[in-house]
């Protein structure tokens, strides 16, 4: 547990000093929401139907931005080498990076979410809490896949371009399940929500376990 908390603590300290990751994710997420608002404003489409997709597009694109930043930070000054030399297992390193990526994403998302509610003129009732819960589950899945994929893409010649190409197809189940669950909450009809939540949780568990096992191959020199 100790190496894990040490990595998270280190990342939080860096983030408090540089304020790069959360602010860029936050700005990007809000920009996506605003652009969608312009795109759909005159169309007369029901907000509760398109809202869920809008929110998860904002979340998943902002997450990619944050993941790119998180690994770029480790590559500057060869910090990753230092982490690899530290006396901790590769799996622990992976879990630590997942935890810190997850924390930053969640902080940004919990600021984007109220903005989403305000822009779409929704009232802050139980639905807000329910969607916040779904955000936590979905973000865990995105962070689990994204952390290992950002490590892979960091080795390529086109680092920032490669990550979305690798990540978006793999996170399709998360985005589908999370968007469906969110849309059911927004419509106040939740017939299949437990199935969607199971998929979200299952996805996160499967990817946390597999990535934990294969992470050493991704960072090996």
């Amino acid at each position: 547990m100790k190496p894990l908390t040490a990595i998270v603590f280190k990342d939080i300290v860096i983030e408090m000093r540089s304020k790069e990751s959360i602010s860029s994710m936050l700005m990007f997420g809000i920009l996506v929401l605003v652009i969608f608002m312009f795109a759909f404003e005159g169309s007369g489409l029901d907000k509760s139907l398109i809202g869920a997709g809008e929110l998860w597009v904002a979340y998943s694109f902002a997450a990619i931005l944050g993941l790119n930043r998180s690994l770029a930070m480790e590559l500057d000054n060869d910090c990753l080498q230092g982490l690899l030399l530290a006396p901790l297992g590769r799996g622990a390193l992976y879990l630590g990076k997942v935890a810190s990526n997850f924390t930053f994403m969640i902080i940004a998302e919990f600021i984007v979410l109220p903005v989403f509610f305000i822009l779409n003129n929704l009232s802050f009732d139980q639905r807000f809490l329910a969607i916040a819960g779904i955000s936590i589950l979905g973000t865990l899945g995105i962070a689990a896949v994204g952390t290992i994929l950002s490590t892979i893409s960091a080795n390529t010649r086109m680092k920032e371009v490669m990550l979305p190409i690798l990540q978006i197809p793999l996170t399709v189940p998360v985005v589908i399940a999370a968007a469906e669950a969110t849309s059911q909450i927004l419509n106040k009809e939740t017939p299949e929500i437990s199935a969607w939540l199971t998929i979200l949780a299952g996805f996160s568990i499967v990817y946390l376990v597999i990535s934990y096992l294969v992470f050493e191959f991704a960072v090996e020199e």
Binding site: V145, I148, L149, I152, N155, L166, P169, L170, V172, P173, V206, Y207, I210, S211, V214, F217, A218, E220
Partner: peptide, 13 residues
């Protein structure tokens, strides 16, 4: 190495 990791992750998906 990296392609094997991605291939594995992708096919589990």
């Amino acid at each position: 190495k990296l392609c094997a990791v991605f291939g594995l992750l992708g096919m589990v998906d």
